[in-house]
Each structure stands twice: as structure tokens, then as C-alpha cells.
Design a protein around this nucleic acid. Structure first.
Lengths: 153, 153
DNA sequence: CTGAATGCAAAGTATTTGCAGGTCT
DNA sequence: AGACCTGCAAATACTTTGCATTCAG
């Protein structure tokens, strides 16, 4: 299953390349994990991924999932987010352009956005402060349209 | 001790006001916690605060510290940050204007910055997406001047 | 073949909670 | 008096680790 998933090859290629640089191996479990990630919603937790293996034939253990997620993040295949809910969220970064997030504190909905102007401004600020920036994370918290409407009445 | 700390009264006032709105009480432990917070570095963890009570005469328990920190955050006296190290950092927000952070991924140093332009832009983005924004958090990760210099050679 | 990876369960962290007794207002 | 608070220890939630066995290159 998940044999024609768009991007699976590109991801495995990048993973393999990364693993080679660290003399690590592309195991069947790591392949399975990549497959599963493609079937996950945009943002998922380590536990979501672990759960997706319950009752599977070649089961992958929790420890392996956690270890793989760290590697994937280190290799730039996944990005991690912390929306302050006590656990990390992962998001596939390959084939997706950089973006930031609006988080509804009421219903938990997450909306993505991107602003070139903002990116430029961030670089300028970092530079001015003698900082060599490599990434950034920006979150705007509040209420989405629906929750706001519901709260106002 | 900590009797002439600048701001302690302002903070206790705001805390007391907040507690009243929720019919809660300003206990001696909560006062002690506020005192200790004033003696903490800019960013501190719940555990730092718990530790600051070891061997004190009227000791304050871990549970109480955690409960108080939640209240203080809820009342807008503290702000919480998550720099992805597995624990929350707290920061006094009273008497301090809003700001964002540059985080050095090498040495852990945190530099604050503020940009009016950026604030305006964030509001504009939220509005355009039908979002009622209440706060935001922006972090730029990278290397500070010193670490960058050390890494280049 | 050999170093790396896996599964399992146990160990850690960080934080929360139940409860009996103590304390503000 | 009565609602709220506290300390304690036990419970949670998430993540990491030790170790014997299995596997990829």
C-alpha cells in the first residue's frame, strides 16, 4: 500500500542521502515510517504515528518511531513545531515551501500563511543584531473566524 | 529579603486584582513566589523556581509553584515560551514591553528584539485571514555572533 | 562480517492531580 | 464558617535509553 504516493521516492532519496552522510542505514522500518507519514494529516505527533502501526503486520515499535522522527528532522525532511500543547508536532517539509502559522486557541485549528515581506524583515533584524539566522518560527495566536463569531454573541 | 524590589507591589496589585475576578486568594505562598520570581533571571523554568525554595523556612511545594505559575500566566503577569527544549520558560511580562526572540542554537543564548513594522504586519496578516489575533510568538533560530565566528574557522 | 538498528521494558523528564488537613476573607 | 489552598505522594504524558537480538551494506 501507499505505493503510488506522490513524493515517496523523493523523500526516500533525500533520506538515503542523509543517512549515507552519517553512515546510517535505510532499514525497512524507516521506509515504512516514511510511508505512514505520507498518510498522516499535515501536522501529526509522534504518538499518532506510533498508533498508525497498531495491528500492522511488520509492526514498528514506539522507540523506533521516535528515533526515526529525530533523524528525519535532523535531515531536514521533517520540521518540528511546538504549539505549546505539551508535545511536538511534525510536518513534512519536503516539497512544501516555508510558511508560518496562525493557531486558534479555541478550536485548535491551524492556518498557514506566508509573507515574503515578513521573511525579508526577519533576515534584516537578525543581521542587524549580528545573528546568523538559519530558520525561524512564527505563530500568531487568537481565534479563527468561526470561534470568534461564536464567542461574540 | 526582597523587600525593596522594584515592581513587587505593582505585580502583587495586578495579581490580587486578577485573583479577585476569579474569587481566589492572595496567599503567603503566592506572595513568596512573586518575590522569588523577581530574583530569577529573565527566563526561568518551573523547576528553577522550585529549586529556589530548597532549604527555605516557609518552604513552598512543587505543586504550589506549578499551580501559581499557571495562574500568573493566565493573569497576564507571566508569559510562557517554548524554545523546544522540552520544558516551558517563563518570563515576567509586567513592566516590560512585548518583544520577540533570537535563539542561538549553539550556546542557547537568547536575544530579544522588537520591531513595530513586524507587529503591524502580523496584525494585517491575521486580519486578512479572518483571524482575531490576541498574541504572537516569533523566534528566529541561528547562531549568535560569537558562535558563528567560532564555527567558521 | 560488523556496525548499526530494532523491540521491549524500564527509566527519565516535566507537569498534573487526589486527598486530608490548614488558611484566608 | 466556608471556600479556597497547600503539601505530599502518586499519577500522567511524552520521550529517551539499556540491552540482547537481528539486519543492512
Amino acid at each position: 500500500m501507499a505505493k503510488a504516493d506522490p513524493g515517496v521516492d523523493a523523500i526516500l532519496d533525500q533520506l538515503d542521502a542523509f543517512l549515507h552522510t552519517k553512515q546510517l542505514k535505510l532499514t525497512s522500518q524507516r521506509r515504512q515510517i516514511v510511508d505512514k507519514i505520507l498518510a498522516m494529516p499535515r501536522h501529526f505527533t509522534a504518538d499518532d504515528l506510533v498508533d498508525s502501526f497498531v495491528g500492522e503486520r511488520p509492526r514498528v515499535s514506539k522507540a523506533t518511531v521516535y528515533r526515526a522522527l529525530s533523524l528525519l528532522a535532523e535531515g531536514g525532511i521533517l520540521e518540528t513545531h511546538d504549539f505549546g500543547e505539551g508535545h511536538r508536532l511534525f510536518e513534512l517539509s519536503i516539497g512544501r515551501s516555508h510558511h508560518d502559522h496562525l493557531c486558534c486557541t479555541k478550536c485548535g485549528k491551524i492556518i498557514e500563511f506566508f509573507s515574503e515581506e515578513m521573511e525579508v524583515m526577519q533576515d534584516r533584524i537578525a543581521e542587524k543584531l549580528g545573528f546568523h539566522a538559519t530558520s525561524h518560527s512564527q505563530k500568531i495566536y487568537g481565534m479563527c473566524r468561526d470561534c470568534w463569531r461564536a464567542a461574540k454573541r
